[in-house]
Amino acid sequence: MTFQEIILKLQNYWADYGCVIWQPYDIEKGAGTFNPATFLKALGPEPWKCAYVEPSRRPTDGRYGENPNRLQHYYQFQVVVKPAPDDSQNIYLNSLRSLGIDLVKHDVRFVEDDWESPTLGATGLGWEVWLDGMEVTQFTYFQQVGGIELEPITLELTYGLERIAMFIQEKESIFDLEWVKGYTYGDIHKQDEIQFSTYNFKVADTAMLFQLFDMYEKECQKLLKEDLALPAYDYVLKCSHAFNMLDARGVIGVTQRTGYIGRVRNLARRCAESYVRLREILHWPFLKDNPVVTTHHGKTQPEH
């Protein structure tokens, strides 16, 4: 099964489950969790089901294309379901079966894992899912997002697409994965790895990035004052990426690091709060089928 067939199968599986097939968000980010379809939609009482591919950037993980399994740019397949279904493990395992993985033949393991994103003020508990020792999915029940305790709970599944492909295609290097007949992953992305590793580690203008961080932060604060949660959140992502770049350039000390993460988290928290207010003013539009719901903001009677 080719890399793109894996994506298509997962999309079909989750579309059949009733998910909105979302699209990658057009700003650099470290993981699918940063996409507003996860971060913002996990907040508040409204139900939400969604799946999408997310190109993810981790500047510090660049290896100039020399390491067979580390990339500074890779793909996640992200699924969020709110409220978390009772038979979530089975639903997930069926998605693996839909990829043709024989769960009786392989060793499948749920290894306890506590997940945390200090930048997003998000925490969750769940498992790493292993297939013959390879971690292929993070299976997480979000507990907090943007510092806000969640109710109901959102289930987040993050598939490592390259890893699943390596497992299915039995390849030892990401670059050898067959993307589609005639093209390997390396054909498509190896040059990116070489060029971006050089850029991330050696060339990126740090003075510019420090300045950008400040500018993004300022813009975000301005937007928050005007209750423009959605554009404000874009600037959280931009801040986060600027920080990741500075981190890769090795110009952020440990103390400073905590400070920068705190600044991004603070913005993320305020965006989350602003977004919840926005949805509440709109009377939680996605709740139209569920007339009354209790939230920790009190009873809310949605409009019909």
Partner: peptide, 16 residues
Amino acid sequence: TTIRGNERVLKARLSD
């Protein structure tokens, strides 16, 4: 298959 799978995973770890 399981042996080969685990061997591949360790190889990746050791390469890193």
